[in-house]
Simulated scan of single mutants.
Amino acid sequence: MTSEKSNVRVTVSENGPYMVTGDIPLAKQTITTSAEGGSEAWQEGSAVAHRETYALCRCGASRTKPFCDGSHLKIGFVGTETASRDTYLDQAKLLDGPILQLTDAESLCAFGRFCDPNGNVWSQVSQTDDRAVRTMFIRQVNECPSGRLVAWDKASGKPVEHALPVSIGLIEDPEQQCSGPLWLRGGIPVVAADGFEYEVRNRVTLCRCGESKNKPFCDGTHAAIKFSDS
């Protein structure tokens, strides 16, 4: 899926914030859980007011989160991008099932945990000839914010992806008592500090705690350090 406006993009600045252009909507996206604590659904919060072009903190130290206040300069933030520049499919492993397949690029995991309930998606893929399991599998895979997981229709060879609005979510994870990454939805281009254009994808998560080892993408470190957007 591609972005709706040609000027929509997020540009990583060298050791600085994410520069967002194209008047991209911004809102909190909270992970809601079942009684057992498993990730179940997304709850969208109120829209966050912003300008047509705005800067989002990626060092984790801004006092005006989610926006940058220049703290990256004060703390000497080093935001060197270390993520692979290979395509998603070149990074992913393939799991085969009777009706659907699953691709998994583990390095992109943002620890949303939607993959875990109901026996987990890795076990479900082999049972996708069961309609109930197939429906559950597609839902859980598509709730994965980072796009680590993608379901594929074997007959057509096409991904089974839910359409998402061009928008940025500020992930909150009450179950883990932390704030999560920036969730880029709907095919927003991401441009590296050196001008490299990462593969455009329907779902991407960018680090905003400053501690990911897979910058600019999230690697789940926010949960370990209990990063807070407050």
Rank of each mutant, 00 (worst) to 15 (best):
K154L: 08
G187L: 05
V204F: 01
E4I: 14
K93W: 11
C218P: 00
I171C: 07
S212I: 03
I225K: 09
E197H: 09
L149W: 01
E4P: 12
L170G: 06
I99D: 15
T53G: 04
P25S: 02
R148L: 04
P159K: 00
T221H: 04
V12H: 12
F67M: 03
E36V: 09
V150E: 14
A110M: 06
H72Q: 11
F114P: 09
S6H: 03
K213G: 09
W42V: 06
G79M: 13
S39M: 06
S46F: 00
Q124V: 04
N142V: 12
V8R: 04
P181R: 02
A223P: 01
G119V: 10
I75H: 12
D96I: 12
E52D: 10
G45T: 09
Q29A: 12
T103N: 09
E161V: 07
A35Q: 07
A41N: 07
R208C: 00
G195W: 04
S212G: 08
S34Q: 01
G60M: 08
R201A: 05
M19F: 03
S212A: 05
V150D: 09
N214S: 08
S3D: 08
V12K: 09
P159A: 13
N214V: 05
N7Y: 13
G76I: 13
A41P: 07
F227T: 03
L164T: 01
P216W: 05
K154I: 13
R203T: 02
S13L: 14
S39Y: 07
L108G: 06
E211G: 07
T128K: 01
A47Q: 12
R201K: 04
I24M: 02
D130Y: 12
C178I: 03
T82E: 14
C144A: 03
I138P: 01
S34P: 02
W152P: 01
W122N: 00
T135A: 12
V200Q: 08
L73E: 13
T11P: 09
L170K: 02
R134K: 13
R63L: 07
V10E: 00
S6A: 11
D153A: 13
A223Y: 02
G112E: 02
V190C: 00
R131Q: 15
S228P: 14
R131L: 13
Q140S: 14
V141F: 15
T80E: 15
C178R: 02
I24F: 02
V200T: 11
G169L: 04
W183T: 03
K213V: 11
S84T: 13
C144D: 08
C57A: 06
S6L: 01
V190D: 00
D116K: 10
A110G: 00
Y18F: 06
Y88E: 14
K65Y: 10
K5Q: 12
A151L: 13
I168E: 05
R131F: 11
D116I: 11
S123T: 10
K5V: 05
S167T: 10
D86E: 14
T53I: 02
S3Q: 09
A55W: 14
V141T: 03
E106Y: 11
E81H: 13
M136A: 14
D69V: 01
C209M: 12
P98W: 07
N202M: 06
D23F: 03
H50F: 04
P98D: 06
V150S: 05
S39C: 08
A61G: 03
Q101M: 15
T64R: 15
Q140G: 10
M1C: 13
R131V: 14
T221S: 01
R113C: 14
D129A: 08
P165C: 10
